[in-house]
Design a protein around this nucleic acid. Sequence first.
DNA 1: GCCCACCTTAATGCATGCATTAATAAATGC
DNA 2: GCATTTATTAATGCATGCATTAAGGTGGGC
Lengths: 222, 222
Amino acid sequence: MPDKSPSNSQRAIHELRARIFSGELAAGSDHLESELADMLQMSRTPVREAVLTLEGQGLLELRPRKGVRILPLSPEDMSEIYDVLTELESHAAERAATARYAESDLQALAQAIADMEAALDASDLEAWADADTRFHTELVRLGGNTRIQSIVGMMSDQVRRARMTTLFMRPVPTKSNEDHRRVYQAIRDGDAVTARECHRKHRQDAKKILVDLLAKLRLRYL
Amino acid sequence: MPDKSPSNSQRAIHELRARIFSGELAAGSDHLESELADMLQMSRTPVREAVLTLEGQGLLELRPRKGVRILPLSPEDMSEIYDVLTELESHAAERAATARYAESDLQALAQAIADMEAALDASDLEAWADADTRFHTELVRLGGNTRIQSIVGMMSDQVRRARMTTLFMRPVPTKSNEDHRRVYQAIRDGDAVTARECHRKHRQDAKKILVDLLAKLRLRYL
DNA sequence: GCCCACCTTAATGCATGCATTAATAAATGC
DNA sequence: GCATTTATTAATGCATGCATTAAGGTGGGC
């Protein structure tokens, strides 16, 4: 038997995450435990456990008697999250450079960059976003700090919806690709300071673009 | 009726945290859910919920069939955590400086510094550690990023035991106080770069002292 | 007409019990 | 004696049911 069934509790976590990301569970909406339990065809117990876990991940909020609220993201939230990402990812970039990886270890990073460029040429923003995510994930992995990996993962999850919604409203991320390449080179060359500072600036730019966009569109919640 | 009883689940969280910090639940030890339930005089359900939450905070680990394991800290863990604290706290320091707080808003910070100095004069390390914690907490609060506050809180919790054990093995933290004062002044003067860099160096030094100490003592787990 | 107390409703927090299944011990074959 | 299978044990994952209690509605007092 190939796949042993995961526990209902695990399934609940994954299903709920997926539905939050897809927007099926809309930001700001409230849901009773029993409603979610019906939806997932299981009892309230594993749902409660999943909800507890996801609350810890910052994706939703338990409001006793009012139901589970899917957390919306304000521009301030976005700003906070991008600041965390900026600091932790640039640290990871610095460490990745210090580690003097062999070029073969940077394969995944290079591939992500290549994919992003190809996606831009093909004007495929979805593919670009996917490759961009891979780049950042891989960068953080190369940084070697498991706590940073998990924090960055959590923060990225929190902005995931907003990222997708704004993807098509943003200017084409040409500059982004140059940034990535510079960071890659610095890491390959073992230039920790450049890797750190380049990535830092890259993330700060990304934050500014996003925050300005939200301001211009008067988007208060996503 | 003054205090409405908190839920058992909340109580379980607090009790377990307290017992983990105190060492009553020793690092590396395993405990059955039923054992914890007996200990806290409640059923397994709220204990399970608490355990799920604390797992999310990185204080323990659920190992199905093997019990709940109180996570020990390796020197590598300490190193990871201090790196996260370094990055996020120095960002907070930078922001606190940028915010141009009135001197009255920096009262708590100044008080913490004064308390640390008094504690050092009185050779009261416990009091020093307490004031040091207050300084860092307040600094992060002034930074104004709620996510950084909660992440720093989690990371600080994770090193809490180790911090206490090593407190009396470390050289007297005289230099620390100078650092704190410099950071305070930079914040008061609105010098964001200095605030950031000073605090950064401060944390890096703290990390080095701790990691070196652990290496010297050949401590593998705390 | 407004405010407060009471009541109704139903969502949650939690205890309980059971089926499942991993871990260990026992037993069998080689 | 060792390896492999089988049996035993017991911890967990989960469903269920109930007591509690908050939220909102209702009615009465002023």
